[in-house]
Nucleic acid binder design. Structure first.
Lengths: 130, 130
DNA sequence: AGATTTGTTATAATAAAGATAGAACAGATT
DNA sequence: AATCTGTTCTATCTTTATTATAACAAATCT
């Protein structure tokens, strides 16, 4: 999986990595059960520090998206391993964005279309990879 | 409009304020053209620093949601004043959330239902207020 | 078994962001 | 004229983000 880091971005590097891993799973480039590169080799590939990658992994583990096996490595979790709190957190994250969309003048339909088209993008690239 | 600040939240105060103002507009508690409290009085009401409120306002102005009249005050902008870049930024913000929703195991329908129910919440409280 | 790789832990340093504080300025409002 | 407004400036403090070394012990590989 190819990950690109924008050092000048306002979003921190460890979140850029985490988000792109999540995207990679959604697109089917990587699958549950597969292992992620070690924090050291990943950091070397990206040209960044080991601890930054480590922070990404723990961020993903906290979300329940990966499982870190101490002294061994990290693997992508299966969807059935997720808890209800994941969805609660997602709701809280969606709320301000939907509010802003409405304030900006988007209609109910426009917002739905935006969401649908984005889901399709992920599902399409998943079909291509499978 | 009532704004509640959680000092222990991981989301910065200036964003809590901005998000709740956006929500207030979406809910119809405040309307385009209306003026926001001055940064000093608002800060006094919330028990926080003037500069934190000022940062909120400039954050909202950058999004195009309010207009700051120098040396005078801030008013809520009208939806027609918004540019296309607002929607582009929103797309980028939605992307990681939708990816995560899919990874967590939510179906296309479940995501749509989540979005729809949230939009309804805003629209309902808007009808009540009007 | 021995060497290597793994995540973990600890300490340290730097830079940026978030928040507060106080003060002064000049335009706008009353 | 007095007050209120956002603006600007300096300053301090805390937290977060990132990098840098180093050492440790469990897991893995050869």
């Amino acid at each position: 999986m190819i990950i690109r880091i924008e050092p000048e971005s306002e979003v921190p590097i460890y979140l850029q990595i985490a988000n792109q891993i999540i995207e990679g799973i959604a697109r089917g480039h990587i699958h549950p059960g597969q292992s992620l590169p070690s924090v050291r080799t990943f950091a070397a590939d990206l040209g960044i520090n080991m601890h930054t990658v480590n922070k990404s992994y723990h961020h993903l583990e906290q979300k329940g998206i990966i499982q870190i096996m101490p002294k061994s490595g990290a693997i992508i979790a299966s969807p059935q391993d997720f808890n209800e709190t994941s969805i609660t957190r997602l709701k809280d994250a969606f709320k301000p964005l939907i509010a802003e969309s409405l304030v900006v003048g988007m209609s109910h339909q426009q917002i739905q279309e935006l969401v649908t088209s984005m889901i399709e993008v992920f599902k399409n690239s998943k079909e291509e990879t499978q």
